[in-house]
């Protein structure tokens, strides 16, 4: 195929106060068609009050083959968690 219709990632916010969540993807020639297709494909039962469409080609992702090294800096920093610190019970809830 010479001309494949571009792929878009679809993010939907169900209602104000929540964040947009990735729900899937679809093909559309441009952003206007992507938006109306996203409405028809992903919000047939009031699942959304706001839609973002992003060209899939615009997404840069971390490499799953290097997940361990990439996230390593956070692994051994247990002092970032509240339970690392000893506070006597007498102090009460903190």
């Amino acid at each position: 195929m010479i001309n494949e219709t571009p792929l878009w990632e679809v993010f939907i916010r169900q209602r104000n106060g929540l964040s947009h969540r990735h729900v899937g993807s679809l093909h559309a020639a441009d952003e206007a068609l992507a938006l109306s297709a996203a409405r028809d494909v992903y919000t047939r039962r009031g699942e959304g009050g706001s839609i973002w469409v992003v060209p899939s080609s615009a997404i840069t992702a971390s490499d799953p083959d290097h997940t361990d090294e990439f996230f390593d800096p956070a692994e051994d920093k247990i002092y970032r968690h509240p339970t690392f610190y000893d506070i006597p019970d007498d102090v009460g809830h903190m």
């Binding site: 195929m1 494949e4 792929l7 993807s25 494909v41 992903y42 047939r44």
Partner: peptide
């Protein structure tokens, strides 16, 4: 009409899921 439209939607969710494995919709 709503049911048949849903089935079209199901097909599209599934094509999109298959495409993540490196096959194109056209193929």
């Amino acid at each position: 009409l709503a049911k048949v439209q849903d089935e079209g939607g199901h097909g599209l969710y599934l094509y999109a899921a298959a495409e993540t494995l490196g096959v194109s919709r056209e193929e």
